[in-house]
Design a protein around this nucleic acid. Structure first.
Lengths: 208, 208
DNA sequence: TAGATTGTTAATCGATTAACAATC
DNA sequence: TAGATTGTTAATCGATTAACAATC
């Protein structure tokens, strides 16, 4: 099993580029075209495919439909992925209303909060008490969650998620979560992203 | 100038860990402690510091206050960084209300949209017409922006930002922006983050 | 001083790229 | 066939880690 995160991210990007090519009516693609589309080398594309046993036709390139099917299989896109959110603040609200997930087969099933004022049991995407998470996650067999609570409650909310059976967390809280070995964490730290951007803007300014 | 993004991200993490140590009353720190705090090796810490000419005391470790000052200087934390947002949807709203930015010296000054229903010229963080971006950015000398509009309008909004003088964009739209050479782009792609998480959850499940 | 930690060089590791034989 | 593209191996590149002399 390949555990290089960058490689898996490239697979997602290939997939997105292939969707666009297919919608434009293309049927086949060369490693060179895909490389241009996502900004890597053709060697990289062929190497990535070869790591997953994806083969094309020498001289004929790759068939887009079959490539999409294989990439979808690897990335788990062969079924709808159901997701919950811990926290029902502004960020959770933004995620619940985000349109981009549906076409990717990602469905947000519910959000959970400790604040009774946030509860909305009958909303399209219900907001439920944190104590109900475990029942919900177990009975819906959900494996992936988003952590969108303030930093101060983040580890506690994460522990609730792990206890409920969540195996992967997309973490927006700006801290390093302690997690069981059999669980995956992806961090999105907006302060650090902006700080990083500021650094590179300053570098480019000095250069130019 | 160091242009390794991971290295700069580590500097941010060191800084955050150092804030916590300082608030706990610590005055000095060894490379080994910092390494544990952010999950890297002590060699990595010393190497990172050495790349930026940061030195400690042989035997005595590093003084936290002076380290924070130096890291702050490198990361541009010696002054408030003023930022605008293109788009005034749910995500922009979440960012405008996010509490984490203030302590990092990041201030969101305004958001811009094309929908007159969103305008709020007198709000604490005003929402202004997209056409006013250039004037606002120029007169406030803003260099960094967040792109939080739907995919379909993203490149156009980015071009507006570049034309206004923005040199760095934190991009939430799920596409590869075309940008001038002297501009920096950091991408946050939530679909890809979740897709990636699903992959690793599946890998861990098969392993276990 | 003896012991411990830095700063830096050298070794290792892993990922990317180049090259090219295989082949359609 | 001749030309072009794949699949894979070897070479390169860059980042991380180990090692250790310098030194407080």
């Amino acid at each position: 099993m390949i555990t290089n995160k960058n490689c898996i991210i490239r697979l997602s990007r290939y997939k997105n580029a292939l969707y666009r090519l297919r919608d434009l009516g293309f049927v086949k693609v060369f490693s060179d075209n895909l490389a241009d589309a996502i900004g890597v080398t053709a060697s990289q594309v062929r190497k990535d495919f070869s790591l997953f046993g994806i083969t094309g036709n020498r001289k004929g390139g790759y068939e887009i439909a079959s490539l999409l099917e294989k990439l979808g299989g690897i990335l788990g896109k062969d079924r709808i992925e159901r997701v919950i959110i811990a926290g029902a603040g502004h960020l959770a609200y933004a995620l619940m209303h985000y349109r981009g997930f549906e076409k990717e087969g990602i469905k947000i099933e519910a959000a959970f909060d400790i604040d009774p004022l946030k509860f909305a049991k009958n909303a399209q995407i219900p907001v439920l008490p944190m104590e109900e998470m475990k029942d919900f996650v177990v009975s819906n067999n959900i494996k992936v969650g988003v952590l969108a609570v303030p930093e101060v409650g983040a580890q506690r909310a994460a522990d609730t998620m792990f206890a409920a059976g969540i195996k992967g967390i997309l973490n927006f809280a700006p801290l390093r979560l302690k997690a069981p070995n059999d669980c995956a964490i992806n961090n999105v730290n907006l302060e650090i992203e902006l700080e990083n951007l500021v650094y590179f803007v300053n570098v480019l300014e000095k250069k130019g």
